[in-house]
């Protein structure tokens, strides 16, 4: 059995770990609130952008010479995966689940004889994907929005994606990120960025019908040329925001668990410590008594 001294130092070390994890939990909680607010504030823009794009797409439907960014290049030989992870660890399965999905997608695409390219956002994803897909990674961004995520960060990434697309480097672009559902649940989401996914559902049929009579200033094509890269940036921005909120949520619950586990461990160790101490005292007493009796 471990000596009392050893036990004491174990308890002390677990206690200090617990302090760290609970502090990290607090920090994550504070950051989470900010990130969640930001994600929610950004939602109206993305929604309206979607609406505008949908009505534009509807009015351009069936016409020739529609921008390939909207309609696709007509091929799907090369896929670009935009993988959004975090820069830091200690957030449970947050990065692992993203990487697992990305790896699976990449392998599936490869099996179909397609070419895969990857852009990593976040150090953790890059480090994990680099092992298997070192040649596929075109670029990686780290420390994105370290202090506060701004639209420029997303714009930069989107600009690069658009550049690659214009250069004909890929046909289809998919973004993989964690969607923030709640503190304990983040959903790995894949979203098609290029070509623009057609608006789903018929519930907005009335809107769709109205869109036919929109007038455009200047004309559709010109607006679209501006709107498409912008939409890309907005979608990337949304992904980054969701991912940031998810990261803090995941870290918060991971740290909460860790703190609780440390608490359990301390309880167990304290129990053993006390038992050992008592056993030792009893032993000493027996020694004294038997010594006294022998006289």
């Amino acid at each position: 059995m471990a000596s009392l001294k050893e036990l004491r130092s174990r308890i002390a070390s677990v206690k200090s770990t617990q302090k760290i994890t609970s502090a990290m939990k607090m920090v994550a909680a504070a950051k989470l609130r900010r990130a969640q607010e930001q994600a929610e504030e950004a939602r109206p823009y993305a929604e309206r952008m979607d609406r505008m794009l949908a009505s534009l797409a509807a009015s351009l439907q069936g016409r020739n010479g529609v921008s390939p960014m909207l309609a696709g290049t007509g091929a799907d030989k090369t896929h670009l995966l935009l993988v959004i992870t975090s820069d830091r660890g200690l957030c449970g399965g947050f990065n692992t689940s993203i990487v697992r999905r990305a790896r699976q997608m990449a392998n599936d695409l490869r099996a179909e004889g397609k070419t895969v390219r990857i852009i990593c956002i976040g150090r953790k994803g890059r480090d994990q994907l680099r092992r298997d897909f070192a040649d596929e990674i075109v670029n990686s961004f780290t420390e994105v929005g370290r202090r506060k995520l701004s639209f420029e960060d997303a714009d930069q990434i989107a600009a690069q994606v658009a550049e690659l697309f214009t250069a004909g480097e890929f046909d289809v672009c998919t973004m993989i990120y964690n969607r923030f559902k709640s503190v304990i649940s983040q959903i790995v989401t894949t979203q098609l960025l290029i070509p623009v996914a057609p608006p789903e559902g018929d519930e907005e049929d009335s809107d769709g019908a109205a869109s036919a009579v929109y007038s455009y200033e200047p004309d559709e094509a010109e607006i679209l040329a501006d709107l498409l890269p912008r939409n890309l940036a907005v979608q990337v921005f949304r992904g980054l925001l969701e991912s940031a909120a998810s990261e803090h949520g995941a870290r918060m619950s991971a740290m909460d668990n860790a703190t609780r586990n440390a608490g359990d461990m301390i309880n167990g160790l304290t129990l053993t410590y006390n038992r050992t101490r008592q056993a030792q005292i009893t032993k000493e007493l027996i020694e004294i008594i038997s010594g006294a009796e022998a006289l």
Partner: peptide, 24 residues
Amino acid sequence: FELVSPERLLMSETVDMVVVPGAE
């Protein structure tokens, strides 16, 4: 009238008229 930027909703109000600097 609603004015949104990528980062947040700047304004959402009911007004009489809005004058917008259009491209043309």
